[in-house]
Design a protein around this nucleic acid. Structure first.
Lengths: 109, 109
DNA sequence: TGAGCATTTTCCATATTAGGAAACCATTTA
DNA sequence: TAAATGGTTTCCTAATATGGAAAATGCTCA
C-alpha cells in the first residue's frame, strides 16, 4: 500500500470512537475477538468488521491460539502517525520541546 | 463538542489525502480558500467543503481580509492529537525516548 | 468423522459522504 | 446602486460505510 493510503486507512480507523475503544482495550494486553466484542458491547459480527479494519490499517495484528484469534497492538504504525504529527509540530512555533516533553510525560504515567 | 467527538472529527478530517495536502499548504503560511483550491487542483465548491470540514474539526480557522477568507492552521489541536498518540506510545514498550527523540528530530529538519 | 465453538463473510436495508452545477450571499469597487 | 469577485450552500446523484442475521469457514476435541 502506498504511504498516503496507509495514512488514510490509519486515520480513518482512528476516526471512530469504538475502534479507539478497541485499541484502548488492547493497550492493556492482547484479547480475543470475542473478548473485545464483549468489552465494548458490540455484537461479534460488527466487532469482527471493526477489528478487520484496524488490521487492514496495520494498527493491530492477530495470532491464533487454539480456536481463538488474539489481537495485539502493532506498535510500529504509531511511528508513522507520530511522523505525520511531528511534521506539523515542526510548524508549531516554539513549542517543539514542549511537545516532546508532553509526549514523554504522558508516556511516563 | 464532546472530546471523543472532536477526536472523531479530527481523525476523520485527517483521513483524506487531499485534506492533508490542504494542511500542508497552510503549514507554509495562511492562504485564501481560492488559493488553496488552486494549490490542490480542486474546484472551489469541493475545496470549500473540505475546508469547512477542517474548520469544524478545529484544525484550522479563518479570518477575512477584504473579500478573501484566509485559512490558518490552528496549532492547538495538534496537542490533542499528540495526547492521543502519546497515550498509546505509553504502551510502546521501551521506545518512549526514541519516540520523543524522533519527533524532536523530525521537527528539527 | 461429527459436533461444536470462534470468527468471518455474505446479504440486505439504511444512512452517510463526496462531487459538480447552479443558486445564493457577502464584500468591494466602479 | 449595479456589477464583479470570493465563497458557501443547495440539490441531486453515485458511491461507500454500517449493522444485524444467517450462512459459511477454520480449528479442536470426542
Amino acid at each position: 500500500m502506498e504511504n498516503a493510503q496507509r495514512l488514510d486507512a490509519v486515520f480513518y480507523a482512528l476516526s471512530d470512537r469504538r475502534r479507539r475503544m478497541l485499541l484502548a482495550e488492547l493497550a492493556a494486553g492482547p484479547k480475543s475477538v470475542g473478548e473485545l466484542a464483549a468489552a465494548v458491547q458490540m455484537n461479534i459480527s460488527a466487532a469482527s468488521k471493526h477489528i478487520a479494519m484496524l488490521e487492514a490499517a496495520q494498527l493491530i495484528y492477530k495470532t491464533r491460539q487454539q480456536r481463538q484469534l488474539y489481537c495485539h497492538l502493532h506498535f510500529d504504525v504509531w511511528r508513522e502517525v507520530a511522523n505525520y504529527i511531528g511534521m506539523h509540530a515542526k510548524f508549531w512555533s516554539g513549542r517543539l520541546d514542549e511537545l516532546a516533553a508532553f509526549i514523554k510525560e504522558t508516556g511516563a504515567n
